[in-house]
Design a protein around this nucleic acid. Structure first.
Length: 341
DNA sequence: TCGTTCTTCTGTCGTTATCT
DNA sequence: AGATAACGACAGAAGAACGA
C-alpha cells in the first residue's frame, strides 16, 4: 500500500535532554524528521529519530508499526540516546555506593519538598541508602541497637535471639495444649513435646534462620542480611517483591518484626490438633513426632512473609495422613529422656 | 555470692476473619 | 454493624541457670 493513502502518523517529539515536547504528524520517517528539525532549528543532515522509551531508531520499516502518539527524541549527528530505561538504571547505579554529597543533596531536596509523592520517593530513597548494612557490632553501629538490652552486642546475635524467641513461643503453645488431650494420652503427649524440646535445643531453636552469619542452608537471608518475602502460603512467590534488610538500620530492624513466620499447614487449627489426635488414636502405633516437629518449627512448613502477604484465613490444608505414624520397624532401644520444660 | 544472661509467662497490639 | 476469635508478634516481669 502506498503511504500517501494512509492517515498520517502522530508523534510527540523532543530534542535530546529537553523536557519540552511538541506534536508532529507525517507519512514517513523522513517527513517527521524534516518537520522536527525545522521546529527545533536543527540540521536534517546526520539527524535521526529514536523512541524515547528505549532508544530504538525509527527507520522506514519500523515507522508504521509503532503506536500513534509515541514519544520520540530527535538526535543530531554524534548524539545518542539509550532510552529512559537506561536513565533509571544509571540513576540506580549512582546509589549503589552513594557518596556523602549525594546523600546530603537528597536530604536537602527532601527538606524542601512539598509534594507527597516526591516526598515519599525521596524519603524511601534516603532510608535505603543510609543503611549501614556492613556494620555488625554495637561499636560499629550504635543507633541500630538503640532500645535493646546491653547484652546484645551484635546484630546477628539479636536477630538470632528474636527468631529463637518466635520458635520458642510455638513450642509453648504446643505444650499448653497438653491439658486438653485425654487422660490416657497425656503422658505420651508430654513425652513427645519433651522430645521436640530437646531437638529444638540441639539446633538452638532454629535461630539461624535470621542469622546472616549462619551457613547457607540454615539461614533465610543472603550473607548481607537481605530477606525476601516468600509470598502467601498458597502462592509460590511474592507478587509485590517485598524485601527487607533488618541489619541495615534501626527502622528496618523494627519493621522486620512485623514480618511473620506463617505456618503453611496451620499450627493452631491443624497441626497441634492433629498431633493430639494422633497420640489419642495411636492404638499401639508410634507417632512420627519428627514429622510434626518439621511442620511446627522448621522452614519446611514456615514461610517468612511481609504482613501484607500474611493471609489469616483458614488455610484448609491438612497433615499428610501417611506420615502421622512411623512405619513398623524393628524396635529401637529408647534412651531415658532428660527433663525438658 | 552476686550480677548477668537465658527462659518462661503474661498482657497487649494490630490486623483480619468470622460469628451473631 | 458490632462483637469476638485467631494469628503472629513484642515488651516487660519474674524466675532459673550460669559464671566469675
Amino acid at each position: 500500500m502506498f503511504a500517501v493513502f494512509r492517515k498520517p502518523k502522530t508523534f510527540k517529539l523532543r530534542a535530546l535532554h529537553s523536557q519540552k515536547k511538541f506534536g508532529v504528524a507525517g507519512r514517513s520517517c523522513q517527513e517527521v524528521l524534516k518537520k522536527g528539525c525545522l521546529h527545533l532549528q536543527l540540521p536534517v543532515a546526520g539527524s535521526r529519530l529514536c523512541l524515547y522509551e528505549d532508544g530504538t531508531e525509527l527507520t522506514g520499516d519500523y515507522f508504521w508499526s509503532v503506536p500513534d502518539n509515541s514519544e520520540l527524541v530527535l538526535l543530531t549527528s554524534g548524539q545518542t540516546w539509550q532510552g529512559y530505561v537506561s536513565d533509571i538504571s544509571g540513576f540506580l547505579s549512582a546509589f549503589h555506593r552513594p557518596s556523602a554529597g549525594l546523600i546530603q543533596a537528597a536530604r536537602q531536596l527532601l527538606s524542601d519538598e512539598r509534594a507527597p509523592l516526591r516526598q515519599k520517593l525521596l524519603a524511601d530513597l534516603l532510608h535505603t541508602i543510609s543503611e549501614n548494612i556492613a556494620a555488625e557490632t554495637r561499636a560499629e553501629d550504635p543507633p541500630w541497637f538503640e532500645g535493646l538490652e546491653s547484652r546484645f552486642q551484635s546484630k546477628s546475635g539479636y536477630l538470632r535471639y528474636s527468631c529463637e524467641s518466635r520458635i520458642r513461643s510455638y513450642l509453648r503453645e504446643v505444650n499448653s495444649y497438653a491439658p486438653t488431650v485425654g487422660e490416657e494420652a497425656q503422658g505420651e503427649y508430654t513425652r513427645i513435646v519433651d522430645l521436640m524440646c530437646q531437638k529444638l535445643r540441639a539446633v538452638q531453636y532454629n535461630g539461624s534462620y535470621f542469622d546472616r552469619g549462619a551457613r547457607a542452608g540454615l539461614r533465610l537471608c543472603t550473607p548481607e542480611g537481605w530477606f525476601c518475602c516468600q509470598g502467601p502460603f498458597d502462592v509460590d512467590s511474592c507478587a509485590s517483591k517485598h524485601s527487607i534488610n533488618p541489619y541495615g538500620n534501626r527502622e528496618s530492624r523494627v519493621l522486620f518484626s512485623t514480618w511473620n513466620l506463617d505456618h503453611i499447614i496451620e499450627k493452631k487449627r491443624t497441626v497441634v490438633p492433629a498431633l493430639a489426635e494422633a497420640v489419642t488414636e495411636r492404638d499401639g502405633r508410634e507417632v512420627a513426632w519428627e514429622y510434626f516437629y518439621s511442620l511446627l518449627f522448621t522452614s519446611e512448613n514456615l514461610k517468612l512473609v511481609h504482613i501484607a502477604c500474611h493471609k489469616k484465613t483458614t488455610h484448609k490444608l491438612s497433615c499428610d495422613p501417611h506420615r502421622i505414624y512411623k512405619l513398623p520397624t524393628k524396635s529401637k532401644r529408647r534412651r531415658p529422656a532428660r527433663k525438658c520444660q
